[in-house]
Nucleic acid binder design. Sequence first.
RNA 1: GCCCGGAUGGCGGAAUUGGUAGACGCGUUGGUCUCAAACACCAAUGAGGUUACACUCGUGCCGGUUCGACUCCGGCUCCGGGUACCA
Length: 990
Amino acid sequence: MSEFNHREIEKKWQQVWEENQTYKVEIDHSKPKYYVLDMFPYPSGAGLHVGHPLGYIATDIYSRYKRLKGFNVLHPMGFDSFGLPAEQYAIQTGQHPAITTENNITTYISQLKKIGFCYDWSREVRTSDAKYYKWTQWIFMELFRSWYNKESDKAEPIETLYAKFEQNGTFDVKTVADDDVLSFTAEEWKGYSETEKYKISLKYRLTFLSDAVVNFCPALGMVLSNDEVKDGVSERGGYPVIQKKMQQWMMRITAYADRLISGLDLVDWSDSLKEQQKNWIGRSVGAMVKFALESNTDSKIEVFTTRVDTIYGVSFMVLAPEHELVASLTTPVQKENIENYIAETQKRSELDRVSDVRTVSGAFTGSYCVNPFSGEQVPIWIADYVLAGYGTGAVMGVPSGDQRDWNFATHFGLPIVQILDSQTDITTQADSTKEGNYVNSGMIDGLGYKEATTKLIAFMEENNIGKAKVNYRLRDAVFARQRYWGEPVPVFFSPPTPDGGGNLPYLIDEKDLPLVLPEVDKYLPTEDGEPPLGRADNWHYSSPNGGGGGLELSTMPGWAGSSWYWFRYMDAHNDQEFASKEAIDYWQNVDLYLGGTEHATGHLLYSRFWNKFLKDRGYVPQEEYAMKLINQGMIMGVSQLAYRLKLETTEKTDDDLFNIPGYAHEFYVDNRYKQVYYSADLIDYIKENYPNLEFSIIHIPIEYTDNNILDEDSLRYFRGRYENIAFVTRGGINALLKENENYFLETAHIHEPRSFKTVSLTEKMSKSKYNVVNPDTIVEKYGADTFRLYEMFLGPLTESKPWDTRGIEGTYRFIRKLWRLFYDQNGKYLVTDAEPTKEELKALHKTIKKVSEDIEDFSFNTSVSSFMICVNELSDLKCHKKVILEKLVVILSPYAPHVTEELWQILGNSDSITVQEFPIFDAKHLIEDSFEYPIQINGKVRVTLNFPADMTKEEIEKLVMENDLVLKWLEGATPKKVIVVPKRIVNVVI
RNA sequence: GCCCGGAUGGCGGAAUUGGUAGACGCGUUGGUCUCAAACACCAAUGAGGUUACACUCGUGCCGGUUCGACUCCGGCUCCGGGUACCA
């Protein structure tokens, strides 16, 4: 093949790879392993767009590079195939989500294969496949069978908890679960029935049922996680979300809060990502303090504070309106007041409460509690700035040290007490300093912050009025969704008994896994509000040990399947274990993980949690599963928008219309137009002068735009529907604004998140935004190699960047230029066996050096530049020498696998390029002889000299003088590199 | 508000980490080839200035350190992302 034809070359090699299973990988103890993982995609109906493959290309380059470096590389791909879009589609059309999903996956695979990735497709996983979710269910069961022992700081089988209860009762059992609630002795425990013991154990397991307040979305008929709710509406669809109490399966991720923080030290992730996770976990160290009620000293209000030291400055107590004690604390006099306030609060939507931070509101309950240190009387208020869901839902008000408390105190005329001598000006604002010594502070008067805190906590613990406590922002994760397209929860409920007992959750027998998702007639909730699984026939379990009951109707949330999938790739077809011990021992964990930053507080926390759990239970060896993580940036679609005059809503008489600028001329005088679009630079003018006109925003296909200027003629020519539209420019409006004839568009950058489950319903419509660039079209026209190079060339991997199709011509030219090192225009083979020259070797080795360094640093963009420079240099040198070209082709092969395989063969090699070794650069070809080649810039001659470390000052000076240069030394400098300028002054040394 | 990150030509972006700012590519302009186009090739392309050189200015803004600053330090402005009455 002497003619460059990317279509034939790519087809040929993709076929060869498939037939020979070139990229199939097996355990091979003779080689070091390397595991490269992409965050697997949710197969959306829209198929891949140009932004998706960015990360995949980067990992593919890295995988191929590592393979050439002698590693046994695991580089798999699969699909996170449970998810809402398929279910929504099923609700609308009645088509089974499995079918939609299957179709979408087929599209994805064919698109991915066209780009030439070196995945081992035999290891593909799909989370919605029963063979896969069998093990998701199994992990759920393991979590259910475990509790978190704070003493050993790991998860243990529930049996060890039973043993501890047997020995000591609740005494000495350190756990994170309900540890303050239950209290019994070993004797009492022994007296409990098995069912009672089981009931108690349910409170300690890592998956547990809880009456949680959840985000319920009536329109979607399901519960949403906090990250699925944005600004009080559902992230998908934007429907209203209300707070509702429901019994929910929960995951005790809070047990791992500390380890999720400390584990970050083990991994090579970006600081910003680590920071995000730390903030999300929100560890705050402080104390729990009990304030007894004045009316009933047995009853206490607990507050969490990070500043116990300010306890003597407490001048009021605030409860969340939802706090359970509010009703009993309210005195008859205040009853109406409080009830009004609560009603008021409930009326305000989440959005109002959040956006309206500044307004101070609250109500007095009429009751008082007692400051346990000063013995002072403290009035109890309620206010919506205190959140029921954080801490204890109660706050001690210290107006001198906290701005919100200060605002509250000032607004309601409560006293502001100075507690530190260093506090200044607390009459105008709070001062949260920790400096200075305490005043007005009883037992800590005169002390500093540290001693005071220690003393207070010791005192509280001694007198049982409080204790040191670490609080987290992180909540336990709701692990259930009231929807169909997810993993069924392998749990049944024992039948209720007449005395109100029963109805306890039990795991199904492990032998009955997978619990397969049943068929239903519709994918909507049932009439009485039960989840879709309520529609299934025989959704009931009969235990082989006798007994049984109705199966759980909720399914698992989207993140279940993605929280362990990297292990499945290690041994994708195992039906005895989630992955064999041998496979896990060999592959260990992921060396390089690449995906979008939007998973920072979702997937990347949950999956770390599951990994740690599996490690605790001895199934996997590593505390962290993703050693290096890179967040690739997004490729932004560019939308070009036009302003269309809304004739349908604009009041219009003929006179009005005639007065609209541009309109009269374009619409009336020239009768062919039916609509008017205004240039973006006119909008301000029109809005000012015709405030009653309304506009809608129209997407213009980007191929008819040149940046933000419309190519009106071709748009009209190629798109019939634009024929009747008048595009009004500044110049088109009388003579008033005659300064520009261009029709300007509004440019908008649209983020296209590449993700597991973040494909929103509205985003599906991006086809209609005319901003989607389909990779298939690009690959067809320019070839996969060009596409791969261009995506890398666009900019740094981790940055967001706008897509510009025009730029791809440059990389396309590069590939053709490369080809012409082998064949001339007439198809004549040019490659010779001649010895390379010094310059040729230098060009090659410079590139080898740069490219290896760049790949190690993930700077793929600059290495593409180096390739271009190298090929340009070799072209200029007319270098067609085999020894040079062979090495060039090998180092280029990770980036452009098809064309390099072809060229490799053309060079006379029978084996595949994949078995080659990545060339090592030879520094001797790079030595710069600066004296022979002075560089001339702007008429100045400057020379950079590199000296061996052992060269003395005198030797350097001699050298410089011999060459008619001037050199000035800096005091105390050690020569490493010298810049000299002839006959002028000199720069020196570092 | 708080926490991260960023700002370099018409555009995407380079700059060996303090040493010739603008690599590489796109776009634009001029030219060669062609009946013409496509492809390809050559040249120019930060701004001002000049016939051309010279020269001057120039990495968001103000100041500092240094022989030398896109790079380091102090103070701002704007943009992007995350998060939010978190006690």
